[in-house]
Nucleic acid binder design. Structure first.
Lengths: 267, 267
DNA sequence: AAGTGGTCTAGACCACCAA
DNA sequence: TGGTGGTCTAGACCACTTA
């Protein structure tokens, strides 16, 4: 290396490392190829392992690498595009779009879920008696449905759907035992209602322990949280929080059928 | 604390630490309040500073904390919801939605940008001669427009818009000097075209050095990359890549006027 | 059992900000 | 100038996978 220039604004080592590795990935490695292990890479670049790991972490965050404990670090395939906004206004489970019902249960809502349910729909007349007041109280049970989404043979998302018992009259009659069948039964009841509108938001989060397990990631792994609220004339009928693997997924919001095919390229 | 139970599956210290801190933030701190510095917190919890930092990093990723070098760590306000999908099918700059034109320039497209431009629209007849072939070549210049988006007094996003010279005939006639005026002129020319459709995707990334500077973050900070392609009858007329601060933003895709107001709650 | 990535430590120095 | 977070080191041990 020598001294090309004494950088006036010294770039952090891990940042420079990341750049070097990134270019090496473009030119000298194929998808799926295994990289040398961390100790050797660190030695090769003359840095401490922690510093090398800082660079690898960034590359993993960007979806360039995949690291698995006990196995090694491999070059990741390009992110898969998963359609999130294409089907306009439909209840969960209405179309066969890769989601699989896993289980259903009943529980009291957490404060966070209550908040989501309480906020009114913009299409409903605001200020009316329907919004706000204790339609969904903390002591009213909420049905929860777990689903997972599989794309190209890989679990890319885990979802938790919250349906207040008050939203759907027929819900209390469901007597299926816990399991996929019960989950599907809850969805069927929900689909009886007339859907008035929906509402989505995307933000960065870290995987809770249970979601991490479904996604085959470590707890705390970066995820994209997609929160959807389903509105009926009566207000917010259901809320779902879908946890997408941020390392492997690109969420697409194309209008019917349009799809971005690939992003990453060499050089 | 004592020994509640010798956990059979020992939770990592930083994970437990994160949980403890998270609850403390809910109960004992107000938004904007300054936390004790890292060395003191580490000592207080009896861990090394690096471990404490691992917990803080996660909390910052989740938008709970804000850390500034030379200043300290403060409790972050709830994420702001920024509308990304509400205005359906409109050119950039058509509505006053918080975006400010900053600058415009001309350059040769990178391979990644070319790839985005080359992929055809799904609404256009596929297989026609228009798609594919060298309409956008690597040696054809591309106009770039820089914009920033300000919400509640804070820069939340930096955007780079790519417009191939071939897309917009009137573009070469623009003679405004570099600066906001030139950027607005390019947008005006673009808006003359008939917009046929658009296409969005969201993924996790890390801030490039220039974007980081606009967003007042360090290079490598986690960001949400929103890629939009604008289609005309002729194919992809423009592509924009918007870089949103992942720590402070929640992207909303509500249908006209609907808006999630708040997410985080205490307890 | 050997090898991998994940966690953790106890230091050190540096870049940045405010008083 | 003092205090903050950001970077970096050279070790150690642990959890997990594969053979």
């Amino acid at each position: 290396m020598g001294t090309t220039q004494l950088e006036s604004v010294p770039e952090p080592k891990y940042w420079h490392l990341k750049t070097v590795l990134s270019e090496a990935l473009d030119h000298d490695f194929a998808v799926g190829e295994i990289l040398p292990n961390e100790r050797e890479l660190a030695a090769r670049f003359g840095v401490a392992r922690a510093t090398l790991r800082q660079a690898l972490e960034q590359l993993e965050l960007e979806g360039r690498l995949q690291r698995r404990r006990g196995v090694g670090t491999t070059v990741a395939p390009p992110r898969v595009g998963v359609a999130v906004g294409s089907a306009r206004h439909s209840w969960p489970g209405e179309s066969a779009d890769g989601w699989e019902a896993v289980d259903a249960a009943e529980a009291l809502p957490t404060a966070a879920v209550l908040k989501l349910l309480a906020a009114g729909s913009g299409s409903a007349a605001s200020g009316s008696a329907a919004s706000g007041s204790a339609v969904f109280a903390a002591d009213q049970p909420v049905h929860t449905v777990r689903r997972t989404r599989v794309t190209e043979g890989q679990v890319v998302a885990a979802e938790l759907l919250y349906v207040p018992a008050a939203s759907v009259p027929g819900l209390s009659a469901i007597d299926a035992p816990a399991g996929p069948a019960r989950a599907r039964a809850v969805l069927r009841e929900l689909q009886r209602l007339a859907l008035d509108g929906q509402d989505r938001s995307v933000e960065l989060g870290s995987a809770r322990a249970d979601d991490a397990k479904e996604l085959d990631r470590l707890p705390g792994a970066p995820v994209l949280l997609v929160t959807t609220r389903y509105f009926t004339a009566g207000g917010t009928a259901a809320v779902s929080v879908a946890t997408y693997r941020a390392d492997t997924c690109r969420l697409t919001f194309g209008d019917e059928g349009v799809e971005i095919t690939e992003t990453r390229v060499a050089s």
